[in-house]
Design a protein around this nucleic acid. Structure first.
Lengths: 224, 224, 224, 224
DNA sequence: CATGAATGAGAGTTCATTCAT
DNA sequence: AATGAATGAACTCTCATTCAT
């Protein structure tokens, strides 16, 4: 079998697994179902992945690696830190939206990572977070050093931003994806921006950001 | 058997389940183990909970109800919105810290809530969020109306705050609880505060909040 | 459940397994079949034996222990070495005949013992052989010391006797149990007797033993 | 492919199977392992043997046929029955020693023969035994008729000898091949010899045989 | 002839749940 | 109410065999 065939079939299996894991959850999904969905026999799954968990891990790795590659590429061609911050936000939103139906799986990745005794899941996730933090740290530091941001403990701010991203994502997932993820990220960015921008920078951006605050990100306001 | 005995045994079962679910995860925990840990026979578990999932739900309900009760009580005796905001934050931190070892279970609650076809888990979680949002909405609105906060879409801000709380909690769990949750909440509060406080209010609090930003919440800064 | 019930059910499982292992072989016998044969559910087998192999071992142990007990008891009440030799032979023959239908299993015990990495099977079998050798050694030594047997290396003779017993058994099994095991043992005993008896003892027994040699142990002689 | 290539590859497969069956057992050996060990692809095994069991049978047949051929050849050139008896013993010992590492497989052949519904294994083994018995019968009869042996039921004696051979072999295998197989066969021969030799013949050989009895065949006597 | 990816029946084992005691 | 032996459906994974290339 040609290399391409193998890769294609492997990819079909990952896609089938993604769909089923998203829909029914990791534990409730049967290996036979994945095979069926991918159009192969049950035994064939084990030609590509040693265990069901291995397939689960491969899915995590596939997605994170893909995101890392894409983001690296985009950021490499944009030197301005402020623009880079937008790129990261856009990339995250696009990634999540592209995988909108798969979103619930991430909760399972996290839950699994906390139990898995071999630490592979947790390790991969932390490597991903480290990758993001590295970029976050670099560009946040540039903004602080450039006087755009107030003096602030950069690692803490970066971590907080990461946490907030996950939190907004969680909110989005648990609320049935009932609002625009992109607008929510813009809203978040506006609040944080007003919080950490230096006086000078704020003078410039204040109006625009305050406007975002007034708009919110929910389709139907709770007030209405 | 007296009512008290039943309640006590039920509580022992919940505690046993909490410990095991936290340690090994919901799926990897056997009903027999829970029984053993609680000092009863396997069959006895089913005298108190119809199914394993029912027990899982009871645990979620027990914790959320407890939190709702405590918070309601505390807030009832404090009329000032600004003070109330602190109370909510404190209550959340205290709650999470009290259940620090159980923290990973929440990821499983969320994951489970997204699959459970009957929607009970998701419903209970949304009821909890609604409870928090109600309070958040009330006191945020008071702050906006009182001119302490900038004009802002209150529902969006409240949601964002909730998301951020979960995100910081997630961060804390996935990083092995490697930093002070309380300090992280204070840091978050400072960033958000600087972002949404009105000009007047900021004049008063600015210095204190900026100081928090400089301090960060991580024990060992990545910069050092 | 009473202790007796458990023991009885365990015994039923052993009997069912014995029958099936004898008929179809260890590998070809399914755990479900054993359960069915014993009148219990498949899962129940695992209440009594941790694995299929464990059940196999239990069968070996049960039979060997039973034989050891019976033989010990019989030998304890008979002081004369010559009589004891007969008792051992009789016990062996009786044992094998009682388990005539199970006989093929012993080949599998041996084969299994040689592979089993944990050495449990081999260890048990060697313990059994050691038990037999101990008695063999004791009574053979008495016969040599008493001048009934020629001077001979006792351990070697004892081992040879054990090997011959197994060999005759093997012969019996592989030939479809087509001759009288008892007569074969008598024949063997006669040949060996004439071989190792001292001059004096031979004078006494010679005629009887030679008669046995002439008779042979096969129903239909190949000569006829 | 030339005939020779096929034969060579077939032989390599038999050798690979022999090694693996001996080491891990028939059931635990995977067809893929045999292929790998022989340096061919898994599918290729099926170009040479229809099934795994067929390969197992081919191994049995190969060994027995080889032994039959060799023994026939050697015996054909030696007319004296007494010498022939030695030749048979030597051939057996040599054969077993050449296949010392494969020895455990014979237990599996036997066990398999007793189950195999088609009777092929059992048939082949019985044909082998018949071949040996034929020779045994011929030369034992010559010894009896020549007055070297006592009058004895020849078929029974021949069978007993065969059984004893297998028994000693079994002993050797189960004891981890912990003694000299050759010396054990000599010891056995001495005991049987003293048992069945006629008075006249015994006079001649008595001293030599009794010496063997005193020596035994075990390296370290249990008495020491 | 040789290959090795694909197959799928079937294996041993697990474990939430039941129910007679 | 409490027990724990019994259940059996359902699981993941294996591996001898096939067959398109």
């Amino acid at each position: 079998m040609a290399r391409n065939d193998r890769d294609a079939k492997r990819h079909r299996l990952l896609e089938a697994a993604a769909e089923l894991f998203a829909h029914k959850g990791y534990h409730a999904t049967r290996v036979g179902e994945i095979a069926q969905q991918a159009g192969v026999a049950k035994g064939t799954v084990y030609e590509y992945f040693a265990t069901k968990e291995e397939l689960f891990y491969a899915l995590l790795d596939h997605w994170l690696t893909q995101f890392e590659s894409e983001l690296s590429e985009r950021l490499a061609s944009e030197p301005d830190p402020l623009q880079q911050a937008d790129i990261v936000r856009e990339a995250a939103v696009q990634f999540y939206q592209r995988h909108a139906t798969h979103a619930p799986i991430f909760l399972e990745f996290w839950a699994h990572a906390l139990r898995s005794p071999d630490g592979r899941f947790l390790g991969r996730i932390q490597r991903f977070r480290a990758f993001l933090e590295e970029w976050g740290h670099r560009l946040t530091k540039a903004l602080v050093d450039g006087g755009v941001f107030l003096p602030v403990d950069v690692p803490s701010l970066v971590r907080l931003e990461a946490g907030i991203s996950d939190g907004v994502f969680l909110l989005w997932v648990l609320s049935g994806q009932g609002f625009s993820l992109e607008r929510a990220y813009v809203f978040r960015q506006s609040v944080l921006g007003l919080g950490v921008l230096s006086e000078a920078a704020r003078q410039v951006l204040q109006e625009k950001l305050r406007q975002k605050l007034r708009e919110g990100f929910l389709e139907r306001s709770l007030e209405s």
